[in-house]
C-alpha cells in the first residue's frame, strides 16, 4: 500500500461510503444508467443534473464535518481485514447455535422450577449470574468485536466494558456459557489473533 496521511485516508473512506449509500437509496441511479446507454430523454437532463449537484454538495458537507468519526488508519489494516473475514464464518455459526439455545430455553416447560441440568446442549434451562473478567485486549476495534461476539454467542450478553484495563461485565443465562467464557477463553484468543494483539 502506498503511504497516505491519516486525514486523507479517512476522507477517502467517508467519501466512498457516502457515495455508495447515496447510489443505493436514490432513484436517480436508474436515470444515470439510462444516460450512459443513451436512453435518457433530453427534457430530463437539467432535472437530473440539479439533483446530482445537490447530492455532491451534501456529500462534501457531511465529509468535511464528520470524516474523523468514521474510521481511523491503523497498522497493517489489510491483514487485520483479511483475518476478520476469516473470523466471520465461525461467528455466524455461533449466532445459529445461540438462537437454537435461547429458543430451547424459552419453549422448555420447566425452565424455572427444577435445578437439574440436561437438555439439548447439556445445560439446565435458566440459572442467571453476572460474571466479570479481564482480558489483554486494549484497542477500540478489538474491544468492540469482543463485546459484540459475546452478545451474539450462546447464553451471554455484555453489560459493561472498561477499556483501560480491558475488563468485561457479562450477564450469563446459565452456568455452562459463563464457564465457556471464563475457563475456555477461545473467543478472546481468536479476537486477539485477528487484531494482532498478544492473547
Amino acid at each position: 500500500m502506498t503511504r497516505m496521511s491519516e486525514k486523507n485516508f479517512s476522507v477517502l473512506v467517508t467519501l466512498v461510503v457516502l457515495t455508495i449509500f447515496w447510489l443505493l437509496l436514490s432513484p436517480l441511479t436508474v436515470d444515470i444508467y439510462k444516460f450512459f446507454i443513451g436512453e435518457l430523454h433530453h427534457e430530463h437532463i437539467p432535472h437530473v443534473l440539479f439533483l446530482l449537484g445537490s447530492a455532491i454538495i451534501s456529500i462534501a458537507i457531511v465529509t468535511v464535518i464528520s470524516h474523523d468519526l468514521m474510521i481511523k488508519k491503523e497498522e497493517q489494516m489489510w491483514l487485520k481485514f483479511k483475518r476478520l473475514l476469516a473470523y466471520l464464518p465461525w461467528e455466524l455459526y455461533q449466532i445459529l447455535l445461540a438462537n437454537l439455545d435461547v429458543a430451547y430455553r424459552a419453549i422448555h416447560p420447566k425452565s424455572f422450577e427444577s435445578g437439574r441440568s440436561g437438555g439439548m446442549f447439556g445445560v439446565g434451562p435458566i440459572d442467571p449470574e453476572i460474571i466479570q473478567f479481564e482480558t489483554t485486549l486494549r484497542s477500540d476495534l478489538s474491544l468492540v468485536t469482543m463485546a459484540n461476539s459475546i452478545t451474539l454467542t450462546p447464553g451471554t450478553i455484555t453489560i459493561l466494558v472498561d477499556p483501560p484495563i480491558g475488563k468485561f461485565w457479562v450477564h450469563a443465562i446459565a452456568k455452562a456459557p459463563a464457564d465457556a467464557l471464563l475457563v475456555d477463553q477461545s473467543m478472546q484468543k481468536k479476537v486477539a489473533h485477528v487484531y494482532l494483539e498478544e492473547g
Binding site: 449466532i95 445461540a98 435461547v102 429458543a103 430455553r105 424459552a106 419453549i107 425452565s111
Partner: peptide, 23 residues
Amino acid sequence: FSGAIGFLRFPDFYTRLHATGKC
C-alpha cells in the same frame, strides 16, 4: 415466535433481553 414466548415467560428483565436480542 420463540423470541416472543421467551420475552413473555422469562423471569426478569435481563433474561428477557436474552430472548429478544438473539431470536
